[in-house]
Amino acid sequence: MNGILDFIAGLGRAVLDIVRMAGRVALFAAVALSHVVRPPFYWRTLWGTLVEIGYFSLPVVALTALFSGGVIALQSYTGFAQYHAQNAIAGIVILAVTRELGPVLAGLMVAGRVGAAMSAEIGTMRVTDQIDALSTLSTNPIKYLVTPRLVAGTLALPFLVLVADILGVLGGFTVCVMKLDFSASAYITATIASLKVMDVTVGLVKAAIFGFLIALMGCYHGYHSRGGAEGVGAATTAAVVAASILLLTFDYLLTDVFFSQ
């Protein structure tokens, strides 16, 4: 009996911890967002973060999208060839890339690359008193460090996903035409016929939300890191794990909202 009670108590504590954490993150995000419309604005930080996320993440996102599009085409062919349904492959590739693979894979890549970097940078600033120094120099640390990163994450990821969509389709096209001897013109025609503005738009909306969540997790965990190098390392890990889980959770919820009939 005691074992059951202990289990329920432990479960309750865990739920309370999660709720408490969600409340803290929501408050942190609300404070940061409230600075979006209140001057002063830190354009240089915003621009620097936009370049860091949008430009320097391009190679990793591009390669991921290119190969994923190719893999989808190859796997689809293996299955569809049995039923002589190869003509559907172009439609499958563009649907998978624009709706799911583009936003999710780009999001996961950016979470690993940029979310970790944000958390490590802000965490290091925390443990070396640089955040306290900001406060003593007439600067609100959340306004200076967090708000521009949240805005940059929200704006940059849709751009990356647009690139990922194009390269993902290109990957599928390359595999189908170069390896599987599809007709290039037929593949392009089928792709255009299957392309839906709604799919691309929802993919970009997902990307904006994912970008916001990745930046939020990076900033939140970095801002609250404690205890020197070990604390910064723990914050960085937590930021990437939390961003990845949130990203996949929101992916399901958004898919349910936009596509379930």
Binding site: E121, Q130, D132, A133, S135, T136
Partner: peptide, 17 residues
Amino acid sequence: YMARIGMLFQNGALFDS
């Protein structure tokens, strides 16, 4: 009030970036 205070931190706390 904060604008009237200057602070030298233990490790300098200079901004790396």
